[in-house]
Design a protein around this nucleic acid. Structure first.
Lengths: 146, 146
DNA sequence: CTGGATCCACGTGGATACTG
DNA sequence: CAGTATCCACGTGGATCCAG
């Protein structure tokens, strides 16, 4: 298990060497894009470029106005999404991914493919876990004798 | 970003659109490992192999007993973490990553490196966003004169 | 059309007490 | 030592109303 440290980081290139903050940021980003809508926003914008508010909301069928606004604000704050406001009547606002957001989307692709590869594995693991939870007290189910 | 990817990912140009269930699973996994402790559990187990409950809890200083148990259960349910119960007194339980969990950890490495590369970018974006929120009504900051 | 503000339901995480 | 159960605080997401 020491042949490859998956989560250890080789060598930072940037001047901001904050190994501490990196873990924090990773978790923050996971939480951020793991919320109900961010991932779909990134996916949609990544595939089809620019979207205006209402059009985007239609695409993410089920999202409330508040949540879409909130989601877009958070993504914008992290520099992942860019807002372009047109001084028109009625108001028009376009949203699109920044280069930073696009790169994150590409990075997410690795996770995407992991999920695709192991979708069945996870589902089976869950079924097995849930299945053995009911019939037996599982605490002693696979107890090892020495 | 093909040169820095740890996995043999074929350089996606855009978000890879796959099946419905995959997106759901991706979001689930993001939420799961994005919670307060899962990422650290995976990281710790990935780096140092097997851990028993209390030892692991010491490592994740700050985690409550309930949350560690809950976190481990969820990871176990998804087939990412394996439990080994010893029928001893006092009780002993060892936790370690499954191959599936290790592969996920490796996949997460891509995200990790993204965060490392763009830690400054994100921080600056946040400062810029928060900074312009107060002084100006930002809605008309980059408005287009149509 | 865009989106801020408010009220509310619910899930999650933490502290504590107790069990095997 | 490992784990369950309970109570509680808080954040998050949704519905709705209101404003530019």
């Amino acid at each position: 298990m020491t042949e490859s440290l998956p989560l250890s980081i080789p060598a930072p290139q940037r001047t901001c060497t904050i190994s501490e903050g990196t873990e924090e940021l990773v978790r923050e980003m996971l939480v951020r894009i793991g919320d109900r809508w961010s991932l779909r926003v990134i996916e949609t914008l990544s595939e089809e470029g620019s979207f205006r508010f209402t059009r985007l909301r239609e695409r993410l069928d089920g999202v409330s106005q508040k949540m879409l606004t909130q989601t877009l604000r958070q993504l914008e704050r992290d520099g992942l999404v860019e807002r372009q406001v047109f001084a028109e009547v009625p108001p028009r606002v376009d949203y699109r991914l920044t280069p930073l957001g696009e790169e994150l989307g590409e990075t997410l692709c690795g996770l995407w493919m992991w999920a695709e590869r192991h979708l069945c594995d996870v589902q089976q693991a869950r079924e097995a876990f849930d299945g053995q939870a009911a019939p037996a007290p599982r605490e002693t189910a696979q107890a090892v004798t020495g």
